[in-house]
Amino acid sequence: MAVLELINVTGGYTRKPVIKDLNFTISQGELVGLIGLNGAGKSTTIKHIIGTLIPQQGEIKINDITLKQDIDKYRSSFSYIPETPVLYDELTLKEHLELTAMAYGIDEKTMKERASRLLSEFRMEKRLNWFPSHFSKGMRQKVMIMCAFLVNPHLYIIDEPFVGLDPLGIQSLLDQMDEKKKEGASVLMSTHILSTAEKHCDRIILLHDGRVRAQGTMNDLRQAFNMPNATLDDLYIAMTKEQDNE
């Protein structure tokens, strides 16, 4: 069953569309990478999915429901990690976790159990009562990641997750994603770290100039570009050159 479904989605910030006629789905238990050059429309696509932008045309469904049909159900089905951490300057780490848990209707006991596991996984136990102004970029990112995983939703939407994280943080995030995948959750992740994407993603969506240029498993992509044995880096560069030739 498709957890996330985009049907002919066209949209952008102004009348001029940034993403055009997007079609893709993500199934249960799938980790899908959204890959593309700067300005290809990755973040815009994500903003449409989380509902901060409304499509000019087409439909986006999570668990077969659109935002309009049931806004609360739509929103509780996913959690989102933005490219730049968005934290409340006036809340401590502990309060960020509590606030998120409250919003998603998680009882206190469950919240505490999940939080303590995440805190030790991301090595942030000692910073529970700190304000974000004392956090480094990586730590801020970790707060966002912990809040997202605390919710335990059907779908994770993660924008450029590896920027600013230390290698241990990256490993912890990948471990968390693998674990959630095994439990049946799906992940949509946009990234520029292609080697990691190639290694961990079940499928790749190559976005180019607001359109889906190619999608599928690594093997599907190699066929589409007619480059057997190519790495994702090779395919990415091939796509860049294609753009230059246009």
Partner: peptide, 11 residues
């Protein structure tokens, strides 16, 4: 500004 609570599944 964008705040995370804008995405919360609450009224």
């Amino acid at each position: 500004e964008f705040r995370m609570d804008l995405l919360f599944p609450v009224d």
